[in-house]
Computed example of a mutant assay.
Amino acid sequence: MPTRLVNSGARCDYLVDGFIEVNSRLEIEPGTLLRFTKDSELNIDGGELIAVGTPAARIRMEGLNPVTGYWSGIIFGTNARPSRIEYVDIVNAGQEGGYYHPKGALAGFGGSLVLKHSTISGSYVNGAIFRSLRLIEFENNRFFGNTWYGVVIDPAQVHLLDAASDYAGREKPNGRPYVGTGLGDLEEDVTWKKLNAPYFVEGYLNVAWGTLTLAPGVKLVFSDKGNLTVEETGALRAVGTAAEPVVFTGKEAVPGYWAGIWFFDSTSRANKLEHVDIGYAGGESILGLNANVVVDFDAYLSLSHANIHHSQGWGVRCGNPEVDGYVLELGPGNTFSHNAGGDVDPDCG
């Protein structure tokens, strides 16, 4: 049955000891303080969590002892109902755990969530993970002092992140100074905003349908052998400015560290790279076309005011012109340097 936790005015309103499963409605009153014993967990599965504080009466959930990762955190199960967390501070949760713990102070295997005006700090692993846990709304949150990322998020949800939130940890930096994403497909028109931390693409990012627009000043950092693929009906529009270029780079400043940006079969005229900086790619490619930028299999790309550098292969490389009908439009302002194979493949025309 529904449960309401009230603010009694005590130094600690509730001491949570152990694994608490919520299979109905759990509502927490503004100003309520909850303390959790070691390894305790609030598990929302079959129920919903409504924790809505106010600017003057925030809800606080913290470990009984001020130790990083002291308690497990808030975990949403596959049957969780839509929940809401506003003006809430989640402190010193998050454990590395095992198979049944998704390595975040706020995470889940399902459910959906509104998260606003809240903080997550002192996690032994990530602050929050939004993969199977879906976001409904996200606004003005802060993530700091977490051992790993402040936020890890599925690529399909990145566009929901707001520029007002703090992902880097201004109060205390997170151990991994990025917004973690990657290993996924994009299938609709979305815009990724400039945040106060770069995006870290772990593995691959595939734009298969719809257009991915990257706002001026966006920075994508790729993992070892990572890549960005644009194919079929997908498109990539990265249009920066001279003052705020869109940056694509590897986690390490080593030529060939990541594989690069590949345009395959995408004939969309929305494919545009302008005022971009693309460096340290040209690593191992499934087609052997090692370059920072690859255009192949009937793809289209407009490239201008681009700084392309430190490739292990070519700066820009194209497929076989006798077989493939790609179109590469090289506009003004492009610069190339330190590309081991050459700057622009002669096959690019």
Rank of each mutant, 00 (worst) to 15 (best):
G104Y: 08
E231C: 00
G111I: 10
F109V: 06
S268R: 07
P177W: 06
F222H: 01
T147K: 12
I153Q: 02
S118R: 07
L287R: 14
T68N: 10
S302P: 00
L287N: 13
V239G: 01
N92G: 00
G127W: 05
L236N: 02
E48F: 06
Y300S: 05
V230C: 02
L49T: 12
Q95G: 01
V151R: 06
G342M: 06
F76K: 04
G282N: 09
G169M: 04
I136V: 15
G73Q: 08
K116T: 12
R11G: 12
R170Y: 05
A163E: 14
N339D: 14
T233V: 04
L42P: 10
E27I: 15
L212T: 01
L160P: 03
D296V: 14
H275E: 08
G283W: 06
D324W: 12
G110T: 07
N307P: 00
Y280H: 14
A238M: 04
P55N: 14
R142C: 03
R170D: 10
G250L: 06
Q157S: 08
G108T: 07
I59S: 11
G217N: 01
L34D: 07
I59E: 11
D13M: 11
F248P: 01
G127H: 06
T211L: 00
E41G: 14
L330W: 02
A340D: 13
K38I: 14
L5D: 07
P216W: 01
D189E: 08
P155D: 07
E139G: 01
K116D: 08
L26W: 14
V293G: 02
Y70L: 11
K38N: 15
W258S: 04
P198W: 01
L34C: 11
V316W: 03
N271K: 06
L195D: 01
M1P: 10
S223C: 00
I28K: 11
G260K: 08
P332C: 04
N271A: 08
L133H: 04
Y70N: 10
P82Q: 05
D185L: 12
N79A: 13
V151T: 09
D265Y: 05
V179Q: 02
G69P: 08
